[in-house]
Computed example of a mutant assay.
Amino acid sequence: MTMVDIANKEVPEEKQNLYWHFNRFLERHLPEGLYPRSLIIIIAPIVVLQAIMAFVFMERHWDKISTRLSKSVAREIGFLVELYETMPPTQASRQMLEKMAKDRLALGLEIRPGDSLPPPAVKPLFSLLDFKLSKQIRKRVGRPFWLDVLGKSGFVDIRVQVGKDTVFRVVTDQSRAYASNSHIFILWMVGSSLVLLALAIVFLRKQIWPIQQLAEAAQSFGMGHDVPDFHPRGASEVQSAARAVIGMKDRIQRHVDQRTAMLAGVSHDLRTILTRFRLQLAFLDETDQVKELKHDVQEMQSMLEGYMNFVRGDGGEKAEMTDVAVMLQQIKTRMEREGLSTRFTLADGLVAKVKANALRRCVNNLVNNAGRHAQMVHVDAKFVGNELAINV
């Protein structure tokens, strides 16, 4: 028997374009099962879509809103600084400015005469607020400043040097300078996608399951096993395919039954004729011609027994779990009684679902034929993958 590997068939170089290489890449790296491939078809677009949406949102919306909020806070601080410089340096003026910042601008302003900026605070590694707000204060205020976004939870502490001995301390909510609730959008987006994905997987599983059952049933039918619990399920196309497989199996079974009945009838008729031949030869003298006729009749009887064994093997015998090692040990014992030299190599755990009588007759025929033409008969039995291999 010759096997052709289509997957590894060589393709002319002129046909090996980009599309061909892409298909080869998918064949090598995609899973073989239908269900995993279907999951990839569903999950991959959702993941890519979520990644693009998150990138666009982070790049455009979140970054732009945070920039505008930081710019607004920096402008208000710049306005307060310029207003302070135009006012007389009195306590009443400072109190009025602090009250205006609180009531009109919602900024907690504290004017500290005779104070200076504290040492630089530790900069956070990844803080969009610190980066944006520092950039806008530097651009809109244009004064030495100190910024702390980590010290007080939920607030931003900003200090600006005004003149030589005056410091503005501004405390405001982070939400005024930073789009802090944007993560809610991402959580809703990811959460809803997970829910929809779970529903899609459940639905997909119900659609794939009948196809998997059909594949298992077709494989069992091909190996001669019956699947009594198999019924067409799923989509209309899958049910049509299942009914076609069942119909094909029934037609093959009817064909086998008709062939078996025909061979049984022919063999029975021939056995009757051979029995009459043997009775007639028994009444004749033992001459050379009679001996040759008896030999021919015996050979025809052996051939007929072979046909009958074949009929019995393909008949109603069902495959059952059988200890093949015990069967082969019995065959070995019989051969040794007949004086044949044998060597059996049996692997451990030789239990398989087979038609025991048919397999026994098959191995007996092979071993007997080998014994007629060889001084030593070697039988090797082992599992190769999911298949039982017996070499004689």
Rank of each mutant, 00 (worst) to 15 (best):
R372W: 00
F55A: 12
S236Q: 13
R205M: 02
F344E: 11
K9D: 02
A389S: 14
R140I: 08
S193D: 05
L366S: 03
A264M: 14
G78L: 03
R140E: 14
W62N: 14
Q207P: 04
T345M: 12
L80N: 01
I211N: 00
H183I: 15
F277V: 12
R176G: 04
K164M: 01
Q16I: 12
D288Y: 06
E387T: 11
I331P: 01
M376C: 12
T2C: 05
M262Q: 10
K382L: 04
A74G: 05
M58V: 09
S127I: 10
Q136W: 14
V354Q: 09
L293Y: 05
V81F: 00
K132D: 06
L117G: 03
G222Y: 12
S236W: 09
P232A: 08
N181R: 11
V290N: 09
R343E: 00
H255E: 03
L194H: 09
L83C: 00
L18N: 13
L34Q: 13
K64A: 10
V171T: 07
D314Y: 07
F283Q: 13
M58W: 14
E305G: 10
K123D: 07
G224T: 12
L147A: 07
L125K: 15
Q161F: 03
A282Q: 14
Q207D: 10
V377N: 06
R68S: 12
A177E: 05
V47C: 08
R205Q: 01
Q219E: 15
Q298A: 09
T260E: 06
A374E: 11
F57L: 09
V47D: 00
L34N: 13
E85K: 15
G154A: 03
